[in-house]
Simulated scan of single mutants.
Amino acid sequence: MAIQKVGSVLFLQFLLVVLVSDSINAQYLRQGYYKNTCLDAESIIWKTIRQYISRAPTLAAAMLRMHFHDCFVRRCDGSVLLKSTSNNQAEKDATPNLSLRGFDLIDAAKSAVEYKCPGVVSCADILALVARDAVSIINGPFWEVPTGRRDGRVSLASEALTKLPPPFASISQLKLMFSGKGLSVKDLVVLSGAHTIGVSHCSSFSNRLYNFTGVGDQDPSLDSEYAANLKTNKCKSPNDNTTKVEMDPGSRGTFDLSYFTLLLKRRGLFESDAALTTSTTTKSFIQQLVQGSLKDFLAEFANSMEKMGRINVKTGTQGEIRKVCALVNT
């Protein structure tokens, strides 16, 4: 018992040191960080993103997802952008990240900024700004993105497998993973609202349709009418790995509250979506959002995104400013 108590005290002390360190690093982020070194950086990025999003609006969801995956694995340090090498499998090649897209958009923004201000703007900041700008361009929420992040030099596929919330996560798993990043239960619910513009492959939830408990059954928590429609018109086979399904049917292109309305109708695609209704606290937040205004939701989302963008950032002399986002500097 004494050993366990000492171990618990040491863990709490370690956690306190980590949280304090992370808080100090986050304070180095600020609006207008590049004012004296690359004045037009943010406008250059915005103009580049607008060209891409005007041609492919669905990239907004892709960029938002990429930013989330970056922050949840190894700080918000652009590690998700790094390519694998002969002796290391990077995050982007881990199973949860194989469907990420939009890397060319990040590269284009980086090239445009490098042309004007070589070696100044980090890929981590570019990714954070791109996610915000892409969502804003499709009339989604706008949030402040204080800059000053530095790029990491490490990217491990194994970490992506363990640190990203899986689509089958329970509510207890979700709460634990978010709290481990300094995000609240409310942040968990609000940020899940990003699914209003997202899509998923059938393979991420087909077990709910065809083999929920291993005996060829269907998940009873999924609305039966919705499940039947998915089987008939979308995921016609349990082995379908290519078909994409809107997570907010009929409203995919609009950043609105309908995703939360669907959750209350038991029509969330992922088990992790459905899990949000299994906790009194999270379900209450969902109901508050549905009963409130879109303006309130967008403001809450903006607040949670800014909070997420500060997770464990590298600043000061930590990391580096990559010359190319896919490669560490030599």
Rank of each mutant, 00 (worst) to 15 (best):
L39T: 10
L39D: 10
L39N: 12
D40N: 14
D40I: 04
D40G: 03
A41Q: 12
A41P: 00
A41F: 11
E42K: 13
E42G: 05
S43I: 09
I44H: 10
I45R: 12
I45N: 10
I45Y: 00
I45L: 04
W46A: 15
W46V: 05
W46I: 06
K47Y: 02
K47I: 00
T48H: 03
T48V: 13
I49N: 02
I49G: 01
I49C: 02
I49Y: 13
I49Q: 05
R50L: 02
R50G: 00
Q51I: 05
Q51K: 13
Y52H: 14
Y52T: 03
I53R: 02
I53G: 02
I53E: 04
S54Y: 03
S54M: 04
S54E: 14
S54R: 02
R55E: 02
R55G: 00
A56Y: 10
A56C: 02
P57G: 03
L59K: 07
A60L: 07
A60R: 13
A60K: 14
A61E: 06
A61R: 14
A61P: 04
A61V: 02
L64S: 15
L64R: 06
R65S: 03
R65T: 11
M66C: 05
M66F: 01
M66D: 01
H67Y: 15
H67P: 00
H67S: 12
H67V: 00
H67T: 01
F68G: 04
F68I: 12
H69D: 14
H69T: 01
D70M: 06
D70V: 05
C71T: 07
F72H: 07
F72C: 11
V73A: 07
R74S: 09
R75F: 15
R75C: 04
C76R: 09
D77Y: 04
S79N: 14
V80T: 11
V80H: 07
L81Y: 03
L82F: 01
L82I: 10
L82H: 05
S84W: 02
S84T: 06
S86T: 05
S86N: 08
S86A: 08
N87Y: 05
N87R: 11
N88S: 09
Q89P: 00
Q89L: 11
Q89G: 00
Q89W: 07
Q89Y: 07
A90I: 10
E91A: 14
E91M: 15
E91D: 01
E91L: 15
E91Q: 12
K92N: 11
K92H: 05
K92R: 15
D93S: 12
D93T: 13
T95C: 02
T95K: 15
T95E: 04
T95D: 03
T95W: 11
P96N: 05
P96E: 06
P96H: 01
P96R: 03
